Simulated scan of single mutants.
Amino acid sequence: MTFSAQLKQVGKIALACGLATTMVACGGASDSSKKEEAKKEIAAQKAASADFNIILNNAPDPTSIPVLLERSGAEFDASLLNSKDKVKSYTLSEAASALNFGVYISDIAYLSASNKSQEAIDYFTTAKQLSDKLGVSQAMGKDVSEKLEAALSDKDAMLKVISDSEGKVKAFLNTNSQYDVAALIITGSTLEALHVSCGLVKNAPKDLPAEARNAVLVDLMTAIAKQEASVDAIVSILTPLKDGNENAKIYFDEFKKLQDQYKALNFAEKLSSNKGGYQLTAEDLSGITSAVEKLRSQTVNM
């Protein structure tokens, strides 16, 4: 039994335990072992749930990368956002809803970090159609829209509302054993953060003086280097699900390739050893950028 399937057996296990208890109470000595087996399965279920909760808690915060991008000095680029017009098509399947809810969460965080508060609220209204489809709107809290409205003039407050809401969604899905959905939401969010980061490097103005352009790119490279940990987290999140979920398998394979590319290029070490000379270029990112754009296009066009 796969991890994913195992996590969905709670009801059956509880029923088995209840039957075992009834039979033992009637004096069935041979059924005592069944009761013990059921208890062991319940214990294993709880352990698996706890383990997955730990993995989810290590997932990247959707607001962390947008904040780094904003601090890099790169100009806001609206062309990197996913279109709100596509939302209806995502409601046709749970996987599309989960992945693109994550995509929109990253877009909302990017808009908020860039002081595009009203646009962020508009995107939240769009994303809510997917959270309704997934049944997680209530988990975020009925007043989340009001909280965003109240934080219109406070970027940090808006980012906190987004981060808290995403955390509540993860907790709700974990409590209800909807691990596949939680994993795909986080995967979509991380993919979009990578897309925006790589897109800002790719679209950096060519007419800037070399020194100014390199200064912006170095900071963007730092943001991209920090996402190696996010890629590692997604691989960990999808590993126990990949054998029981087709979409988890697809994204696991692609993020594993990204993980290997990060290790081969060793961005973090290159940046840490940079003593003032610019060492990384957009060409260094070409493999990662190409892989991210292919997967992101596949995701937003589901």
Rank of each mutant, 00 (worst) to 15 (best):
F3M: 05
F3R: 01
A5K: 15
A5S: 11
K8H: 06
I13Y: 10
C17D: 08
L19F: 13
A20M: 06
T21G: 12
T22E: 14
M23G: 03
G27M: 02
S30L: 15
S32G: 15
S33P: 02
K35F: 05
E36P: 08
E37I: 14
E37T: 15
A44Q: 14
Q45P: 00
A47Y: 06
D51V: 08
I54Y: 04
P66G: 05
P66D: 02
V67I: 15
L69W: 07
L69M: 09
E70I: 01
E70C: 10
R71W: 02
G73A: 06
A74T: 07
L80P: 01
L80V: 12
N82D: 13
K86T: 11
V87C: 05
V87K: 06
V87Q: 06
K88I: 10
K88T: 10
L92E: 12
A96Q: 12
A96S: 15
S97R: 04
D107I: 09
S114N: 13
K116Y: 05
K116F: 00
Q118K: 14
Q118R: 11
Q118T: 13
T125M: 12
Q129G: 09
K133A: 07
L134D: 01
S137E: 03
S137V: 05
D143F: 10
S145L: 10
K147L: 04
K147H: 03
A150Y: 02
L152Y: 11
L152A: 09
S153I: 09
K155M: 09
L159E: 04
K160N: 06
K160L: 08
I162G: 00
S165F: 06
K168D: 11
L173K: 08
A183F: 10
A183T: 11
I185D: 01
S189Q: 08
E192W: 01
L194G: 00
L194T: 00
H195N: 13
V196D: 02
S197H: 02
K202T: 11
K206C: 03
L208H: 04
P209Y: 04
P209M: 06
P209F: 05
A210W: 04
E211G: 08
A212S: 11
A215W: 06
A215P: 04
V216F: 07
I224V: 15
K226Y: 12
Q227D: 08
E228T: 04
E228F: 03
S230A: 13
V231W: 00
D232S: 12
I234R: 00
I234S: 00
I237F: 04
D243W: 09
G244C: 08
G244K: 09
N245R: 14
N247E: 15
A248T: 07
K249Y: 12
I250D: 10
Y251P: 05
F252W: 09
D253T: 12
D253W: 06
E254T: 09
K257C: 00
K257L: 04
D260M: 11
Q261R: 01
Y262Q: 01
K263P: 05
A264M: 09
N266K: 14
E269Y: 08
L271G: 08
S273Q: 15
N274C: 10
G276Y: 05
G277E: 15
E283Q: 12
D284C: 11
L285V: 03
I288S: 01
I288T: 01
I288M: 03
E293P: 03
E293F: 13
E293C: 09
R296I: 09
R296W: 09
R296S: 11
S297E: 11
Q298A: 14
T299R: 10
N301I: 05
M302T: 13
